[in-house]
Design a protein around this nucleic acid. Sequence first.
DNA 1: ACATAATATGAATACAAATTCATTAATTGA
DNA 2: TCAATTAATGAATTTGTATTCATATTATGT
Lengths: 221, 221
Amino acid sequence: MNTNSLIEEIIKNTQISASLSRKERDKQLRKADIMAAAERVFALKGYHGAVMQDIAREAQYATGTVYLYFRDKEMLYFSLVEEKMINLTTGLRQKTAQVADAEDKLRIFMQESLDFFERNQDFFRIFFSEVSKGPILKKGKFSKPSGMLQHKEFVEELISTGQKQKIIRNDFSAKQIADILGSIFMAFIFDWLKEGPKDKKLNTAADFILDIFLSGAGRRR
Amino acid sequence: MNTNSLIEEIIKNTQISASLSRKERDKQLRKADIMAAAERVFALKGYHGAVMQDIAREAQYATGTVYLYFRDKEMLYFSLVEEKMINLTTGLRQKTAQVADAEDKLRIFMQESLDFFERNQDFFRIFFSEVSKGPILKKGKFSKPSGMLQHKEFVEELISTGQKQKIIRNDFSAKQIADILGSIFMAFIFDWLKEGPKDKKLNTAADFILDIFLSGAGRRR
DNA sequence: ACATAATATGAATACAAATTCATTAATTGA
DNA sequence: TCAATTAATGAATTTGTATTCATATTATGT
C-alpha cells in the first residue's frame, strides 16, 4: 500500500455514511485476515516460496479472492512490511515521549525495539533470510516504503535530540549516526536470529547494545 | 563455485599433461570472460533484471554457451560473489600481515576494504540494491559461500588479536564484535552508495569509521 | 420473495525466462 | 586432407506461478 492509497483509505474510513463505513470496516477486517495468513505463510516458506494459493487457502479464501483485496503479491508483502514498521514507529514515538532525557529515550528505544523484534521474529526471520540473496520488490513499483522512512526519520530525531543534549558526538550528521545505531542494532538482531528460535535473552541486550553504541568497542584506557 | 569444485579446479590446473592444462587454462579464461560480462550486466540491471541472453550477448557468446561454463544463473552469480570475497580477503590477509600492532592492522583493514569497495562499486551496488527486496540464491542450493566465511573468519581473527593486545574490549566475543565492526562499516558503505557514484571521499573515511568503532558515538565526558 | 448489487470461486490463461538439445562450426592429431 | 573430438549456436521447449474472468453464491433493501 503506497502513501496515496493509504491516504485514500483514511479518507474513506472517515466518511460519515454509516453503512458505507461498516462495509469499509468489514473490508479492512478481511484485508487484515488475509495479511495475517500471508504473514504466516511467508514466515514459513519465504517470499518466493510462498504461493498465492497457499496464502488464499490459509486465509480460507479462493485464490482469486485475494486479488479483490490486494493488487498483487508484491503489494501484499509491501502492506505487511508497512504495517510492521508503522506499528513499531508509532509505539516507539509514544514510549519515548514519556521521558525528556536523551539517554533515557535511547534506552527505551532500544528496549522497545528489541521487544518488537522478539514478538515478530517469524516475520523478520524471512524479511532478513531473503536478504543476502536477492530483491523481493521490483524497483520503482512503489512510491516509497513510507513506514521505513518514518522509522528512519524517528531515529534521526532521537539522535538529533541526543546531540542537542550533548550526549552524542556532533562531528557526524544525525543521519550518519542513526545509520550506525541502526546497523549495530541489526548486527545483534542477526546474531540473535541465528541462534535457536526461542532464546528469550534478546531484550536483556538493550544495555549492552547501547553501551557499545555510546562507548565503542575499544578498551577504556 | 563451491569449495569442492574449487579444489577440483586447482587439482586440474596442477595436472602435468601439457595439452590438458592449456585447455583448462583456456576454459578458465572463457569462464572469466563470461563472469566479467555477467558482472557488467548484473551491475546494470540487477540480478532478476539480467537475462541470460543479455549476459551471453555481452560476452559475445550464444545463450546456450554460457551453460557449458556455468550450471545455471545462480551458479554464475555465486561464482562472482565468491571471486570478489576471496580477492578481498586474500588482499586483506597480505596487507595486514605487514604490521604487528593490532590498531595498525585495523587501520589497514579499513583502508583496504574501503578501497576494494570503491574499485568494485558497480558490483556492490547491485549486491545491496537487491537487498531489502528478496533473496537471490535459493536456500540450500549451495554448500556455503566459502568466500564470505573466509572473510568473516579473517575479521574475527583480527578482533581476537585486538583483544589479546588489549585494545579491544573483551566482554563480548570476537564474533560479536566482528559483526559490529562489519555492520558499522556497512552503514558507511550504504551511505556512500546512496550519494552520487563518483565521490572519491570513501577511503578517507577509514579513520572516522575506526574512531566510531573504537570510541563509540557518545561524547567524551 | 424478489431484484440488484456485492463477494467469492477456481479452472483456465498468460507469460517471462531459464534451460535444453539437435544441429552446425571449429579444432585437433594423423 | 580427413575423421574424430570439442565447442558453439539459438530456436524450441519447459516450467512455475501469478493473474484473470466467466460463473456461482451470498447479502441487501424493498
